[in-house]
Design a protein around this nucleic acid. Structure first.
Lengths: 198, 198, 198, 198
DNA sequence: GATGAATGAGCATTCATTCAT
DNA sequence: AATGAATGAATGCTCATTCAT
């Protein structure tokens, strides 16, 4: 039941679980399935995790934290609103959309196993403040109430994630690139700013 | 001569299943759970459905058909692009977003049990053609390639659905009304058209 | 629950049940399976039979009675031991071996659902007395105690049935004809009698 | 490091299953029935067998292999045709007929779950070659075509097994000893050989 | 700590029989 | 009498978790 024997094994379990939970769903994936490809005995899982639920919770929470912390750091390092936007659209979003399994996991099971509200709200706040600063600096008035702001962010953010998820899993004829390029042009138009090519 | 198959029972199973599958997930809901509140014996389920999979498939496919057929009929009845848009935003979308359970079901399990691609593509085509007609009539040039068009539709559509789902299930501080109002203003701005208040 | 509405339907059920019980086994065949090809409602079965067990019991018992009565009558009509033997080997055995399903049914489920002992013993007695008369008439001494006699009869009789069953069901490279011809020559040798060709 | 798979448990399941399948039939015996007397939880069965079918298949195939291998070894060790015959009739057949449950299992369910044809044909070939050698050595001409040979073997072999089965299960007034003694005398007469008393 | 057999509650599904129509 | 929906006990099998080794 100890927590830290071999961090590599722990990560391996998390990564394989993310893959399988995204592909087949949490309940349709057995703990035995998770360890099968890792050539690891079932018992080992319980050295690193309290329960199967604990695996998915950790996968989502830690995946989110990694990604959110990276975003925070990159934004802090960026000198102004435009630079922050470039980080957001040019590096943070592409990175996120690339992790299809993680995205699928959040959208399909995240709700049931972790506090998504907290995550979404903190992210909305962060992005919202960047965009507000940007609007101010660019002299753009988006004419949106805070509620509308939050709605817009949510619709775009979740819409992006879900479009990528469906593209990969259901075979839509759209790619991650299409989604990024769409967001790219929406942002450039809305804020009359040039953030370079993709 | 014998008792007749009771369509009411079939619908009751479908509706209760939709509710529970949306709330707890397909695999976490047992067939016994489904019939529990209906005061129906488990065996009866198999009078109306071939299997548990058949229940969710029917719930999604029939729910989608109802909704898509209604949309088609309403659009056919509407005299021009603006009227069609009013139907879309003023009646079809509100109706859809109200069926939270159905929306949650599609987003969480639809992929695994039905052909979502076909559904999404046919819908995108329909809405896309309405919007193109509208743009032409209003003399608006959105400057979007077909690909971007499809991407935009997908992001907005899935984003809306997912935002409503998360609002209801994860307790986001946004309502269905916020989402509708956001779409409303996006559309009015984009096509420079007045489709009245919500 | 009446017993005699339509004797044709009753026979049809019996015959289809015999076929299916022989092919798939009693427990692996559902009452619904039995009526499926007959285009008959399940409920009808219970007009003619008390239970599923009653079907198999009737199929075996009545099938046996038909066959045993026919044998008795034919033997009674035959003028002497040799004629009786000719009936036995030339008509009764071929008829029995042709009813593969019935034979399979008796061998696989007869034991469990009916009193096989009684049937076998009565048959052994009948055939035994014919053969004893024959031996006396032909002046042949088989040098067998009554026990050995009964054993011999049982081994030959069951061996024949089972060989035919396996040939049909497991695809042995032997036919009903091979079995009959074997018995034919065994009998001719043992009793030094000529009962013609097959 | 963990508990070791216990071959004893596996054999116990196989043996109890053989007993019950022979007595009540495969489908009428539940997996729970099998473990009931063994004081074993149902789940354990699936540590040792893939499915209920796998149990019966293993019981039949492994039972047959044990018996066939023993026969092969004993025949190989016997110096000539007569010695081989003595092994066959004096030790192999008695051993086989003693395993009533196994015999019943083969005759009632063997067909449905395993390849009986292969088993029967290989056995017929083995015994056939012994008897042919014997006939040659003893200068006996049985005047049987290969087909008749095979038929004879099948009728005798299956007849023996089925007679013993019915004697035990249906209460025929015959014993295993009667069957052996019958075969004994048949063989001695046919091949004019003395293989001692039973 | 590492392993994987043991455990037994839980599940989807079947089916003989009944009985409302 | 005829029908076939209703019923619910029974069944094979899975699987998260524990724990003997």
């Amino acid at each position: 039941m100890a927590r830290e024997r071999d961090e590599g094994k722990r990560k391996a379990i998390l990564s394989e679980a993310t893959r399988l939970f995204a592909e087949k769903g949490f309940h349709a994936t057995s703990v035995a399935d998770v360890v099968a490809r890792l050539d690891m005995p079932v018992g080992s899982v319980y050295t690193y995790f309290k329960s199967k639920d604990d695996i998915i919770r950790s996968a989502i929470d830690e995946g989110w934290d990694d990604f959110y912390d990276a975003l925070l750091a990159a934004c802090a390092a960026a000198p102004g609103p435009v630079a922050k936007l470039e980080v957001l659209v040019g590096s943070f979003l592409p990175d996120l959309l690339e992790k299809t399994d993680f995205v699928a996991l959040i959208l399909s099971e995240g709700l049931r196993f972790t506090d998504l509200r907290d995550k979404v709200e903190r992210l909305a706040e962060l992005i919202g403040s960047i965009l507000r600063d940007l609007a101010r600096e660019r002299g753009v008035n988006l004419n949106l109430s805070p509620r509308q702001y939050q709605t817009a962010l949510s619709v775009f953010f979740l819409g992006m994630l879900d479009t990528v998820r469906l593209s990969k899993l259901a075979g839509l004829a759209l790619t991650e690139r299409d989604v990024l390029s769409f967001i790219h042009s929406m942002v450039q138009n809305a804020f009359k700013v040039d953030i370079g090519n993709l």
